[in-house]
């Protein structure tokens, strides 16, 4: 399709045409200024070349109207670039509602992906065309970065944080992804391929894929028992810690009176730094699990807690903020 020396990568996501349009806009403005200034300099260079050794240039010192012009005009153009860029950026950052969520974990020097039904892949990612895909990114060690040039998407994968990114693939095919944040020795080979498939092919692939032994909810439930979470977080609300039924996505009332939404990041923090946010009415008894659970295990626990969304919330001992008694 593309020439031997293409100027831009393939356009394979909802963002790509917008980003390339913006690129063309800024390039045009910059090319205009670059050419205008270069031509002026080259013209003056030859036109006013000193032919007589004692010659002196014309003595003028400046012009306020000119100064104002070449401050205000570039400022207006710069604000146009800023605004267009801001609009696209907000689009990148505003997650759509109906996403297909895939967990991506970076570690030196490989990528582990987990599909919603638990199927795992390494350095490969299969997604259906036309669906909004949301990637939840976590790192086991240093900072990595998930970069798909054909989608024009990129997001750092930062240890201690969950970062989110989304895109909608628009064209079936196989596309390179790279680690784009330097992460040590094999940084350059920490990449792989995104395979964009027709929805029916994707469904068939999901059904036939191997390596899906552990459904994350099942794995999380097992961990919940193994790590003795269950001894305090009793489902009916009678334990020393709040019941987790219905907590995912709901508002939680904290001891200091503030409220926080129980999302992935909150759950992760509560596992690793339990003292950071204490639920109202409870003591800070929980030990930290820092260093005792991997990012993958945290994701499994989160998946399990998410699955408790549909479980009946006990009237007492739930930790959910009373006003937000949804579900």
């Amino acid at each position: 399709m593309q020439a031997q020396l293409p100027l831009y990568p393939e356009q394979a996501s909802n963002f790509a045409p917008h980003v390339d349009g913006l690129m063309l806009f800024i390039s045009t403005i910059c090319l205009f200024f670059a050419v205008a200034i270069t031509l002026a300099i080259v013209f003056f260079f030859f036109k006013y070349h000193r032919h007589e050794a004692h010659a002196v240039g014309a003595p003028f010192h400046g012009d306020l109207r000119l100064e104002a012009t070449w401050m205000i005009l570039p400022l207006i153009l710069a604000m146009a670039m800023f605004s267009w860029g801001a609009v696209i950026y907000v689009d990148y950052r505003r997650m759509p509602q109906d996403t297909l969520d895939i967990y991506v974990i970076g570690k030196q020097w490989m990528w582990k992906m987990q599909q919603p039904n638990g199927i795992r892949e390494i350095n490969e990612l299969h997604v259906p065309v036309g669906r909004n895909i949301r990637l939840v990114l976590a790192s086991e060690d240093v900072i990595h970065d998930f970069f798909v040039p054909a989608f024009r998407v990129k997001m750092d994968v930062v240890p201690g944080h969950y970062n989110m990114m989304w895109f909608r693939p628009t064209k079936p095919g196989r596309y390179h992804f790279f680690c784009s944040q330097y992460c040590g020795t094999n940084h350059a080979v920490m990449g792989g391929w995104v395979t964009v498939m027709e929805p029916s092919d994707y469904a068939a692939w999901l059904a036939g894929a191997r390596g899906g032994e552990a459904n994350p909810v099942v794995a999380g439930e097992k961990l919940f028992t193994e790590k003795a979470c269950i001894t305090c977080h009793v489902a009916n609300g009678t334990g020393r810690a709040p019941s987790l039924n219905g907590v995912y996505g709901a508002e939680v009332l904290l001891a200091d009176g503030s409220k926080v939404t129980a999302d992935d990041a909150y759950i992760r923090e509560s596992i690793l730094q339990p003292a950071a946010k204490i639920v109202a009415g409870y003591q800070p008894l929980m030990p930290t699990y820092q260093g005792q659970v991997t990012e993958e295990q945290i994701l499994a626990l989160t998946a399990y807690i998410k699955s408790l969304q549909s479980q009946p919330v006990p009237p007492k001992g739930a930790g959910i903020a009373p006003t937000a008694g949804k579900k």
């Binding site: 980003v19 913006l22 910059c30 670039m81 801001a86 970069f147």
Partner: peptide, 21 residues
């Protein structure tokens, strides 16, 4: 001139996501 003008590409939020790093 070229260095400064290409800074305008990188300062642009919508473009920087793709060309960063």
């Amino acid at each position: 001139l070229i260095g400064g003008l290409t800074g305008l590409f990188l300062a642009c939020l919508g473009l920087d996501i793709h060309i960063h790093d």
